[in-house]
């Protein structure tokens, strides 16, 4: 464990807590894409298949349970909790996210480190996580005005993979033969997808204006 990875995990934890806080306290999921949340459930479900078979550390297992539990409960709230479901703008959240999964599963079947069920599922979850934010960014473009909590959620979610990139660089230089191109490239693509969001988020913060993405 290094400071970059810890910062990344804490930033990721903060993003799901911000979203749960928003949904649980103000009973609203306005501006939040259910499609992205459903993709994250699949990302964690396929990423943590080995949660019961391979033990790395208490921290590792605890965080896996937190990410699995929070992503499932967010989807449950947005789908089945009456008050929250009412605030979900279904007309705008129309990204065909199942079509995102197909190329990811095909790519995982083609490019992986080892051709085993666990490894292919794990690789699939990496590719899917890289693009899981797309429905949320598309929804953001459509809904124009973004409330602070949703903006913070996306900012933290984008930031965590940025910290992971620093973690990979650190581990590359400190651990011999620590090389994982698949992880690095999908993590880089994932962070780059947030680039324009980060730019407008920074502008809105600098000019102290409401965050608005150009149509």
């Amino acid at each position: 464990m290094n400071i970059f990875r810890l910062a990344g995990d804490m930033t990721h934890l903060a993003s799901v807590l911000v979203l749960l806080l928003k949904i649980h306290t103000i009973k609203s999921c306005a501006g939040v894409s259910l499609k992205t949340q459903e993709l994250y459930v699949i990302v964690f479900a396929t990423r943590y298949l080995d949660i019961f078979t391979s033990f790395v550390s208490i921290y590792n297992s605890l965080m896996k349970l937190i990410f699995l539990g929070s992503s499932f409960s967010i989807v449950w709230y947005m789908r089945y909790h009456k008050a929250v479901h009412r605030t979900y703008d279904r007309e705008q959240d129309t990204f065909r996210h199942w079509f995102l999964m197909l190329p990811c599963i095909l790519l995982a079947l083609l490019i992986h480190e080892k051709f085993t069920f666990f490894e292919v599922m794990w690789t699939f979850s990496l590719y899917l996580e890289a693009v899981a934010i797309l429905p949320q960014l598309v929804l953001l473009q459509r809904t124009r005005n973004i409330d602070n909590l949703t903006g913070q959620y996306i900012f933290l979610l984008g930031g965590y993979r940025g910290f992971y990139i620093l973690n990979w660089i650190y581990r590359y230089f400190t651990e011999p033969h620590y090389v994982h191109w698949i992880t690095w490239i999908s993590g880089l693509v994932q962070t780059l997808l947030y680039a324009d969001f980060f730019y407008y988020y920074f502008l809105s913060w600098k000019n102290n204006k409401k965050l608005q993405l150009p149509a």
Binding site: R5, D9, H12, R47, D50, S54, V56, S57, N60, M63, K64, F67, E113, W122, Y164, N167, E175, H177, Y178, H180, T183
Partner: peptide, 10 residues
């Protein structure tokens, strides 16, 4: 082994 170190991340 390379197996474990890549899976020690979340």
């Amino acid at each position: 082994s390379p197996e474990t170190d890549s899976k020690d991340e979340l």
